[in-house]
Amino acid sequence: MLVSIAIRILVLVLLILPVFLDCYTKLLAASALTLAIFTVSWLYLEKDLGWASLGHSIPFGVSAYLFAINPLLLFFSPLTTFLLFPLSIFGKHTFPFASFVFSVFLWYLAHHIVFEGKGGEEGFRAPSINLDLIYLISVTILILSCLLIWKISNSYFGLKVKAVRDDEIAAKAIGINSLPFKVFGFAISCSLASIAGILHAAIFGHVSPGVFSPYFSLFPFVAATIGQGKIWSSILGSYTVVFLSWFLSPYVPEFHYAIYAVALILASYTQSYARSDRSV
């Protein structure tokens, strides 16, 4: 209990503190913040729906691309749900890898996206927004998304979503049609991931095929592993990965990949993944 309160206070401090610091720290914090929103979106899909996506960079990256090509296209970003959702036909066990492979495929494909003579491996320039403003927007969105997920998760509706996660046949036996609940859950998660992608593009003012790279597709999984599947600690986990990799990269090349390797190996031992698994 005490630990969880401490974590919440720490997260709040991490959210507020950068407002008073210099541009560089704010950029780092903003980057960690968007990735925290990204992690929260992933965590909802994994916790409440039981689908662990290793290709969550699909909604993240596609929305970032749409936003960069034309900011008005951002309204289409919730449609990215229909890129990720069809992969659920592979079943819960294969879904992580199907989504991972699909995100890698999009990574390659993104090198070929050319629009009005721009793009390709160079990527697109995204509308850049004032850092202070976007930082405040990101903080608001993170808090709102946590609230939203908390609210949905604890409602009767959320209970049905969780029921579908645990056993679709049992859900049918008590009259719950699983499809709409699944689509709804995917839509919530993908929309949040899309928002994170758009914020990411707006912060760096540029979108390149790198948004589909394993760095992003595996990020939420790794952050959630560090946070042991709890929402607040996973936010802290995102900050940890971002800060550690920025600060340690000059000493250990691509430090984040070392963190990734450790987190993936640990995650396969600890039970923090695909929770519906634990039942049967």
């Binding site: 209970l159 969780k162 029921a163 996660r165 645990d166 056993d167 046949i169 049992a170 859900a171 049918k172 036996a173 008590i174 009259g175 719950i176 049609n177 929770r275 519906s276 634990r278 039942s279 049967v280």
Partner: peptide, 24 residues
């Protein structure tokens, strides 16, 4: 008819090997 529709008409089923929501 789909099972969830049949349930709504008033036919409920209890399985031999229980199918419940394990994490609830």
């Amino acid at each position: 008819k789909a099972p969830q529709e049949i349930v709504k008409l008033g036919v409920a089923m209890a399985f031999q090997i229980p199918r419940v929501f394990w994490n609830l």
